[in-house]
């Protein structure tokens, strides 16, 4: 019995149980339950203000929560600096507005974590950085500053910056919503590649093409709750909840 349970848990890299969060008196997340297996790709969608960002930001403690539990790779998310640091080293995050460090070059943006957090020597950190810059196809921009790059390039740098820390989980919060249409594809391509390599991914996005292509599971949130979750085929072709149906008809309608 215990053996079965622990092997099931070993597979679940993220375990969220009955998570509740309030901003003051505003109940923003309600009874969130979510288990993510290693290598699973999850897309989270839902209307604005439904708590999608808040949910994934709880996973690396950019937000605190008041009730419930959250475990990442077996480490309990509690009010303990050690645990928070361990989890953050394990989880990479990509933001809607890239959030590159504007005073550092692209290369310095990428080597910062390996040098200061992982204590790697500079030369090794630069090697790693160049490897990932090549993977996101912009090694030639290494010595420029973020302000000199296009939005799509900046977002690919941001992805590379997270990958340099060698995370087991990647969180994406609307990575393409601040981008012009012609740049969305170059970022999605990188994300698809990453998914194909088996990275565990949680991605808040309204790119339904991406969801259909790579997601193992699509989660629909509304009003701070998980309303529906299913594999992409069922989710898009046969949504169960009226809220989901309404939402899908709105975003697929045009």
């Amino acid at each position: 019995m215990t053996a079965v349970k622990s092997s099931a848990e070993a597979q679940d890299i993220i375990v969220i149980e009955n998570l509740n969060k309030w901003y003051g008196n505003f109940h923003v997340l309600k009874d969130i339950n979510l288990r993510v297996k290693k290598g699973e790709r999850i897309v989270i969608c839902g209307p604005s203000g439904s708590g999608k960002s808040t949910t994934i930001r709880c996973i690396n403690r950019l937000e605190e929560f008041q009730e419930g539990s959250l475990r990442v790779d077996g480490v309990e998310m509690i009010d303990d600096v050690k645990n928070i640091e361990t989890i953050r080293k394990d989880v990479g995050m990509v933001f809607q507005h890239f959030n590159l460090f504007p005073h550092l070059t692209i290369l310095e943006n990428l080597t910062l974590g390996p040098i200061w957090v992982q204590k790697k020597p500079k030369s090794e950190a630069e090697e790693i950085a160049m490897k990932y810059l090549e993977r996101v196809k912009i090694p030639d921009q290494a010595l420029k500053y973020p302000g000199q790059l296009s939005g799509g390039q900046q977002q690919r740098v941001a992805i590379a910056r997270s990958l340099c820390m060698n995370p087991n989980i990647m969180l994406f919060d609307e990575p393409t919503s601040a981008l012009d249409p012609e740049m969305i594809k170059e970022v999605l391509d990188v994300m698809v590649e990453l998914a194909e390599e088996g990275m565990t991914m949680l991605c808040v996005t309204h790119e339904m093409g991406f969801a259909k292509k790579v997601a193992d599971r699509v989660i629909f949130m509304d009003g701070g709750q998980i309303v529906e979750e299913n594999n992409p085929e069922e989710f898009f072709n046969n949504p169960q909840n009226e809220r989901t149906q309404l939402f899908l008809s709105q975003i697929l309608g045009h």
């Binding site: 690396n60 403690r61 950019l62 640091e85 953050r88 080293k89 989880v91 990479g92 995050m93 933001f95 507005h97 959030n99 590159l100 460090f101 910062l112 974590g113 200061w116 957090v117 941001a158 910056r161 997270s162 820390m165």
Partner: peptide, 15 residues
């Protein structure tokens, strides 16, 4: 300094 800078620094794992 935009709050995104603090969040990015946190998520890179800096102390």
């Amino acid at each position: 300094v935009p709050s995104g800078q603090y969040e990015a620094a946190d998520s890179v794992g800096l102390s």
